[in-house]
């Protein structure tokens, strides 16, 4: 690693201030960033640890009944504390990476990084969640902008994510056996006003909504109804773990299985 200073602010305001320094970069759980630094693929001069900011931690319900998760909340806390309110989300958090990673990795870090194979972006997008930053609130549909790309500006940090709680939901993932990230995963969330389906791991553009499936499921919530519905393999990631065609196939399988698990 190149050397850097670490600042450990206790408030969002102090974090934002620290991020104003030259070549400063936020450090959430570090489970992706630290391996990147080890490979010398990043050279920040200051890392601003968000770990000690209590106002960015915790799981609660807001007045609109949304499940609000602080950006610095670790996966293992979400796995426990979201269980009563949003079990599909808790289940997703409980299966990210491995237990030690879940004790450091945070929802804010995952959402800010927007790895095309990360789990959380699927839940955020399928839930139509709102990504809250130190500056503004961003609708999920506007937030994710392609592989590792988001609406975040320089120095902007994800302080909270607000999830409208669906009537039912399920996250189904097929893992890439080396990294244990999803090779393809589908998050299906059923709301009173319709069904949302988000797919992670598959596309070269990162997490995406499978709108054709959403339309069919919103009409008739049945896994069988999706049979025959396919996504185009041409925009899918193709690598040593699977071709684009295979990933496109898995998009259908994972979505159908998620729907079936929800009783559809």
């Amino acid at each position: 690693m190149y050397n850097f200073e670490i600042e450990k602010p206790a408030t969002i305001a102090d974090a934002v201030k620290a991020l104003g320094r030259d070549e400063a970069q936020p450090l959430s759980g570090g489970q992706t960033l630290i391996p990147t630094l080890k490979a010398r693929l990043a050279a920040p001069s200051v890392l601003v640890s968000l770990h000690g900011i209590d106002e960015m931690k915790g799981v609660c319900l807001d007045d609109d009944g949304r499940l609000c998760i602080g950006g610095a909340t670790i996966h293992s806390v979400v796995a426990k504390e979201a269980q009563a309110h949003y079990p599909a989300l808790a289940g997703l958090a409980a299966r990210i990476g491995d237990p030690a990673v879940r004790n450091r990795g945070t929802i804010g870090g995952s959402v800010a990084n927007n790895d095309p194979s990360a789990c959380y972006p699927a839940a955020v997008l399928a839930s139509g969640a709102t990504v809250v930053t130190n500056k503004r609130e961003i609708a999920a549909d506007d937030y994710f902008q392609g592989m590792f790309a988001t609406a975040l500006e320089e120095g902007e940090i994800v302080t909270e994510v607000k999830f409208p709680i669906p009537q039912s939901a399920h996250y189904e993932k097929h893992i890439q056996p080396a990294s244990r990230f999803p090779l393809v995963a589908a998050f299906v969330a059923k709301y009173a006003d319709g069904v949302r389906v988000a797919i992670t791991g598959a596309s070269e553009d990162g997490v995406f909504r499978w709108t054709e499936a959403e339309e069919m499921l919103s009409n008739s919530f049945a896994a069988d109804g999706l049979k025959g519905l396919t996504v185009d393999g041409s925009g899918m990631i193709s690598d040593l773990h699977g071709s684009g065609e295979y990933r496109a196939h898995l998009v259908g399988v994972m979505t159908r299985r998620a729907v079936a698990a929800m009783g559809g």
Partner: peptide
Amino acid sequence: SQCGACVVHVDGEAVKACTMFAVE
């Protein structure tokens, strides 16, 4: 951050000591 040979407990929770800075 995959092999887990470095797992220790920090404040009672398992973490990978190779994926956490000492100052943290």
